[in-house]
């Protein structure tokens, strides 16, 4: 989606969010952030800065210790378990640890995301083939994911996250195991989703090469605190002041 087409309507709004893991590890402290519909946002920071925790909070894999998170205008803490599941169908998440089923094929792993939405077999086959082509994995279609390299597994995880053309795609270190060529394929996938389907993309990464030349907003996390980043876009990039 072109930058000037980004709406002013926030898709995710975090207000004074703190996440403390027992016994007293503060992963995020008093974070306030808006992520707008149709936006591509880079979340940067060193390992342990809190990027993964923020991603997990956004997809309801974790609940905040304090503060409030709204997704599409709805307070996450008030959404029923069934509502959370329905919402997850519209959020694609590429986890840092991939979370693939090693004993299932690449096709089965990717199609699983569409099967839970009861998509037709034809639609699943077409979409999976399309993603495999985009990520240069066509020849791995029927291979067990356990037999793939880390880089290939990472692309399968990304394909699964993108399968439903999600409203929101959260990618945690999506290029950690990729070379420059495949990194470009992944970036192209993000761009395609954003431009063709209006997906909001949040990329958590410490790989500066991905966002160094970007015009999109970049926010940095450091020791659980959000800090302004020199590369943020002026019209959309304001950190939300609670």
């Amino acid at each position: 989606m072109p930058k000037d087409a980004i709406t002013n309507e926030p898709l995710i709004e975090m207000v004074n969010v703190t996440k403390i893991y027992p016994p007293d590890v503060a992963a995020l402290q008093d974070i306030s952030l808006r992520i707008y519909k149709g936006e591509i946002l880079f979340l940067t920071g060193m390992s342990g800065a809190g990027k993964t925790t923020l991603i997990k909070l956004a997809c309801c894999l974790e609940t905040p210790t304090s503060g409030r998170i709204d997704v599409a205008g709805r307070d996450l803490s008030l959404i029923s378990p069934a509502g959370i599941q329905r919402m997850r169908q519209k959020i694609g998440v590429a986890y840092q640890d991939f979370r693939l089923l090693d004993k299932q094929t690449v096709f089965q792993n990717i199609s699983m995301a569409m099967e839970v939405t009861y998509a037709s077999t034809k639609a699943i086959r077409e979409r999976v083939e399309e993603l495999l082509t985009m990520l240069n994995l066509s020849d791995k279609r029927d291979k067990l994911t356990g037999d793939l390299s880390r880089g290939e597994q990472q692309r399968v995880a990304l394909a699964r996250a993108a399968a439903n053309r999600p409203s929101l795609l959260l990618a945690d270190e999506p290029t950690g195991n990729l070379d420059l060529t495949t990194t470009k394929l992944v970036i192209n996938l993000f761009r395609h989703l954003n431009e063709e389907h209006g997906s909001t993309i949040v990329v958590a990464t410490h790989d500066e090469s991905i966002y160094a030349e970007t015009e999109h907003r970049v926010v940095a996390l450091s020791n659980g605190h959000l800090s302004d980043h020199p590369r943020r876009t002026p019209q959309q990039g304001e950190l939300f002041e609670a």
Partner: peptide, 14 residues
């Protein structure tokens, strides 16, 4: 598999 299905948004019925 059930854990992953849950993360992907599988409903109770599914």
């Amino acid at each position: 598999e059930l854990e992953i299905l849950k993360l992907l948004g599988a409903t109770r019925a599914y």
